[in-house]
């Protein structure tokens, strides 16, 4: 899979309350959730960003509440992937489980500015910063997680591996 998009950069400890405030959690509809994406960090975000864009975070991205609505609203908006220095563990699991690409790379985060165009070639583990002409190799996930990712998420993996 090749993902290509413009980057939106956020800082450390972006919590799931900021990604999708609890006042909108009376629905599970991905489109409705997506319409409030990052609202408490930047009210205009949903008007500025486009499907395909990439979110960049600092340390501990997705900390706080376990709400899967956070990666669901990011995915629902059409964000192609999140690259962060590190992820909070529940957000990390949730993203893997719903088959949403996340990449941990302090180096890429440090060297990417908002507005840069990135290309992510997931299969080969390569990130290219088109704007700056840089290229990075990213670390592969452990084989067990890769198996879940290859199946498109946890429930597909259960259907294919556990229930067969």
């Amino acid at each position: 899979m090749v993902l290509r998009g413009k980057c939106w950069k956020f800082g450390d400890n972006i919590d799931t309350d900021v990604i999708i405030p609890a006042r909108y959690l009376n629905t599970t509809n991905p489109n409705e959730l997506a319409s409030h994406l990052m609202e408490d960090a930047d009210k205009e975000f949903v008007n500025k960003a486009s499907a395909g864009d990439i979110l960049i975070g600092g340390n501990n991205f997705g900390c706080g509440s376990s709400r899967e609505h956070a990666p669901i609203s990011i995915k629902g908006f059409g964000i192609s992937c999140v690259i962060a220095k590190s992820f909070a563990r529940i957000f990390f699991r949730n993203a893997i489980n719903i088959g949403f690409p996340i990449i941990e790379s302090p180096e890429v985060v440090e060297e990417t500015d908002e507005g840069d165009e990135l290309e992510v070639i997931t299969k080969e583990g390569i990130i290219k910063n088109i704007t700056k002409g840089l290229e990075y190799n990213i670390k592969a996930f452990p084989p067990f997680l890769q198996e879940i990712i290859n199946n498109g998420g946890l429930m597909n993996w259960i259907a294919e591996v556990k229930l067969k």
């Binding site: 706080g64 376990s66 709400r67 990666p71 529940i90 949730n94 489980n97 719903i98 946890l154």
Partner: peptide
Amino acid sequence: IGADSHTCTYGALGAFATGVGSTDMAG
């Protein structure tokens, strides 16, 4: 496991308890 981040509370009873998301709960 609990689909709520504060599931870790039950560790006080000498249990292993951790928060997960909804899909983990479904699984």
